[in-house]
């Protein structure tokens, strides 16, 4: 085998592999655009002003309304944040400010990383077992518990990383001025890392916005407008689930419109988070 044919073979492999890898990237980008394009196309076609002013209609009518689902989702997200953000923030603070690189802290980080990718349907099962079954009925509260459990690992991780990045000079200056530890952490360190921490919260919010599986056995759905936390509550993902599988034209259009709004919401959140973060690493 001459040198030239070996060289040629290597060239061919190199060029072929470059083409294949470019093709692989094209495949990924193609599917992205296909999904976003159809969501945009069908979503815009299903948009009506009444989506925001009327509630979900019963089958067999031609009405368009998603008001109860929007409000319900906002309430679920708000309540999950109320439960998840403090726990996530404080746990991340412990990791960064008290635990450092100790064995316990690394164990907590390890477990947290596993929880980051835990199947959301299992968390829904867990919320059913500890909230729905004892309470005796489905509730928005149970749904928020499930969503909060999904949100916490993300906030723990970003808080931990962002707080670790804060330089020690600010902290030591505060200590030198006589501030107690908790003041140092809350008024100096948290403040310094607030952009990063906020980013983590936004990313957590983006993650739980479209989650359906945890709500399947917890918040269920509600065809009426309700703000009762201890009863089933309408929400966007479950409405999409119910309407998409139906044979009614107006329901299917509403499913697309809701999907479009959910995707737009998540994209806006991600963009805002990205602009806060700049070049810093973001956990998935």
């Amino acid at each position: 085998m001459s040198v030239y044919s070996v060289h040629a073979k290597r060239r061919v492999i190199d060029v072929a592999s470059k083409i294949l890898m470019g093709a692989a990237t094209l495949v990924g980008v193609f599917f992205l655009f296909w999904i976003l394009w159809t969501t945009l196309k069908f979503g815009l076609a299903g948009m009506h002003w009444s989506l925001f002013t009327q509630d979900t209609p019963p089958p067999g009518t031609d009405a368009f309304g998603l008001r109860n689902a929007f409000v319900g989702s906002l309430i679920l997200l708000g309540l999950s944040m109320l439960m998840g953000v403090p726990i996530g923030l404080m746990a991340g603070t412990w990791l960064a400010e008290y635990g450092f690189r100790s064995r316990t802290a690394n164990l907590v980080r390890f477990i947290n990383d596993i929880m980051l990718s835990a199947p959301s349907i299992e968390i829904g099962l867990f919320a059913y077992a500890i909230v729905v079954a004892p309470m005796g009925h489905f509730s928005a509260f149970a749904g928020s518990v499930a969503l909060a459990i999904l949100m916490i690992p993300i906030i723990v991780r970003t808080t931990d990383e962002m707080l670790s990045l804060v330089g020690s000079d600010m902290r030591e200056a505060a200590v030198a001025l006589g501030a107690p530890a908790w003041v140092v952490i809350t008024k100096v360190t948290w403040k310094a890392a607030r952009a990063g921490i906020l980013t983590g919260i936004l990313i957590g919010l983006a993650r739980i916005t479209g989650e359906t599986a945890p709500l399947l056995f917890t918040a269920l759905n509600n065809q009426f407008f309700s703000t009762n936390l201890f009863r089933p509550m309408a929400n966007i993902p479950m409405v999409i689930f119910e309407f998409a599988l139906s044979p009614y034209a107006n329901w299917q259009q509403m499913a697309w419109a809701a999907a479009f709004i959910a995707v737009a919401f998540v994209l806006v959140l991600s963009l805002v988070a990205r602009s806060f973060l700049g070049k810093v690493q973001v956990p998935k």
């Binding site: 309430i75 309700s226 703000t227 936390l229 201890f230 009863r231 089933p232």
Partner: peptide, 19 residues
């Protein structure tokens, strides 16, 4: 405030809904 309102309203609505 949102959550407080959400928690207050059930007291009014609880009587007139069935699942």
């Amino acid at each position: 405030l949102t959550v407080a309102c959400a928690l207050a309203i059930p007291a009014v609505r609880a009587q007139s809904s069935l699942t």
